[in-house]
Design a protein around this nucleic acid. Structure first.
Lengths: 208, 208
DNA sequence: ACAAATTTAGACAGTCTTGTCCAATTCGTC
DNA sequence: GACGAATTGGACAAGACTGTCTAAATTTGT
C-alpha cells in the first residue's frame, strides 16, 4: 500500500490529531523517514491525501454518470441499476467513505482545501447529473421543473435509507442498497413520471 | 457555560484526540482540576457529552414531532412549516450539529455508546414520525405504501439541498432551509398526494 | 461569622509525538 | 560489479498533553 493510501486509512480511523506518523509508516510498510522524505510534514501529507481522494472519487463519479440511462428500455429498472452502481462504485467504496469522513471531520479546519474539493467535486458532478436528467425530460421520459433540484432529490431519495449507516461510517449490505434505491426510484418516478397527457408523443419518443 | 457544553464545543471543533482539557476548562471558565473532579478523565467526559447531546436532541425532536400537522388546513404549507421547524430546532441548532459531528467522527471508536444513541434516537424518532405519516394517510390526506419508508424519504427530500452545507459543518441560511423544504415537500406530495378517486371521502375527512 | 465543602493555581512525573540528523544498508541502473 | 540514489533504523531535542498532588483561596450552608 502506498504512503498516501495508508495515510488516508489512518487519518480516517484516528482523526487528524490522533493519526501518528509512525502508524502511517508501519501501515504503508516503509520507515518513518521515508514518509518525511516524500511528503515533508503531517499537514502536507494530509493535503496530499485529500487531493488524491478527491481526484479518484471525481473520476469514479464521472465514469458512473457516463453510464446514466439516456435511452432507457425500462426506466425504473435502469434508474435503480444506475443508483446501485453509483452507490457501490463511488459512495460506499473505500475512497468515497474516506473522503466523506475527512470532509466531515476536518472540513472546517482547512477551508481553502475543501472549497477546492467543493468546486472540483459537487460543483461539477451535480451539473453533469442534472444535465442527464434534463436530457431524459427533454426526450419525454420525465416531467421535471428544475433539473438541478431533481438531480439532488434523486440522490437524496435513493440514499434515504442508508443515512444512519453512512453516519456511523459503516458499509450497507448489497440488499440494503438495492432496497433503498428501489424505494427511492419508485417515489422519484411517482413524482416526476411523464404525465400521460400526450401519450402518443411519449410512446413515439421512447422508441425514437 | 457548563463544563459539558464547553467540552462538546471543543470535541467538535478539534476532534477527540485534538481536544485538550486545558482548553475545555478555559472555555468553561473553570480550572482544569475541576474538570477532573467532575468527570474523572477525558473519556468519561466525552461519554457524558454524547449522552447529554443525545438526550437534548431527542427531547427537541419529539417536541417537534408533536407539532406535526395532523389536521392540515393547507397540507403543503403545513408540511413545509413542519420541515423548517425540524431543521431549525433539531438539525441546524447547536446540539444537532454537534451530535451529528461527534457521531460521524468518533462513532466507530465507541460502538456501544453509539449503539445506545441509535436505539434512543433514530430507533424511536423514526417510528414516531412514521406514525404521524400513517395517520395522515389513514385520514385520507396521503396515499402511502410503507409509512417508515415515506418518513425517511420525506426527511431526505426536505434536506436534499442542504447536504453539502451539513457535510462541511456549516449552518444553512434561513432561505436555503425554506427553499429546500419547499422543493422537497412539493416532490413528496407529487409522489404521495391522495389520488383523487374517492374525492368525497377525502374532502369529508379533511373537515372531520 | 464560622466551618465544611468546593475550587483554584501551580508544580510535577510520565508518556507520546513531531520533525531532524546521521551512519549504515539496500536498491536501481549502467 | 560499481556507483549514485533512495531507504532504513535509531537516536535525539523540543514540545504538548494527561492525570495527580498539594496547599491556598474561595464559596456555601447554617
Amino acid at each position: 500500500m502506498s504512503v498516501v493510501d495508508a495515510a488516508a486509512s489512518v487519518f480516517c480511523r484516528e482523526g487528524y490529531a490522533g493519526a501518528n506518523i509512525d502508524l502511517i509508516a508501519a501501515e504503508a510498510g516503509v520507515s518513518r523517514q521515508t514518509v518525511y522524505n516524500h511528503h515533508g510534514d503531517k499537514e502536507k501529507l494530509f493535503v496530499a491525501v485529500v487531493r488524491d481522494l478527491t481526484e479518484r472519487c471525481n473520476a469514479g463519479i464521472f465514469a458512473t454518470i457516463a453510464t446514466f440511462p439516456d435511452q432507457p428500455a425500462d426506466l425504473e429498472a435502469d434508474l435503480v441499476a444506475f443508483a446501485v452502481r453509483m452507490n457501490r462504485n463511488c459512495i460506499c467504496n473505500r475512497d468515497g467513505r474516506f473522503l466523506r469522513k475527512l470532509i466531515q471531520a476536518e472540513g472546517e479546519r482547512y477551508p481553502e482545501l475543501f472549497a477546492e474539493w467543493r468546486e472540483q467535486g459537487p460543483g461539477r458532478t451535480w451539473s453533469a447529473l442534472a444535465a442527464r436528467f434534463a436530457r431524459l425530460a427533454f426526450a419525454g421520459h420525465l416531467s421535471i421543473g428544475d433539473p438541478d433540484v431533481a438531480a439532488r432529490q434523486f440522490f437524496a431519495l435513493v440514499n434515504a435509507e442508508l443515512q444512519i449507516t453512512f453516519m456511523l461510517g459503516g458499509v450497507p449490505a448489497e440488499e440494503e442498497v438495492l432496497r433503498s434505491a428501489s424505494n427511492g426510484v419508485r417515489t422519484f418516478l411517482s413524482a416526476f413520471a411523464k404525465k400521460k397527457s400526450p401519450a402518443g408523443k411519449q410512446a413515439m419518443l421512447v422508441h425514437a
